[in-house]
């Protein structure tokens, strides 16, 4: 039982748990900042799975998986930076940083007085 729980299996499990945790946060929380954090946590979960896979077996860790994770982290930070900029822009326009699941504004234009 002990040797089956080496990092090669434990951390991918942890990564899967983080992915699910992030997904739960993304679905449940309405505030955009928290949703962006949730996406980052999901990303970290995936990277943990990747690095867990890299550390499998007693050979030295697999550099390709680690390089992919590094690329993933940089992609994640760029996406987060843009998401934050968009959140600020949205807040400047709508006055709040929350994506209300309210009625689709697409059907707002039915009445003639709609903008």
């Amino acid at each position: 039982m002990i040797e089956s729980l080496d990092p090669g299996t434990l951390y991918p499990f942890g990564g899967a748990a983080l992915f699910a945790l992030g997904l739960h946060g993304l679905i449940r929380r309405r505030h955009l900042i928290l949703r962006i954090l949730a996406v980052n946590i999901m990303g970290s979960g995936v990277f943990m799975v990747f690095l867990g896979i890299a550390a499998r077996g007693d050979a030295p860790p697999d550099p390709v998986a680690q390089a992919l994770t590094l690329t993933g982290i940089v992609v994640a930070v760029s996406a987060t930076a843009f998401a934050l900029a968009l959140t600020v822009h949205l807040a400047r326009l709508t006055g709040h940083a929350v994506l209300l699941p309210g009625p689709l504004r697409t059907h707002r234009g039915n009445r003639p007085e709609d903008p």
Partner: peptide, 12 residues
């Protein structure tokens, strides 16, 4: 993940 065996990946 539990079903996956522990190959060395592309390290070699």
């Amino acid at each position: 993940l539990a079903t996956q065996d522990h190959g060395p990946g592309l390290q070699p």
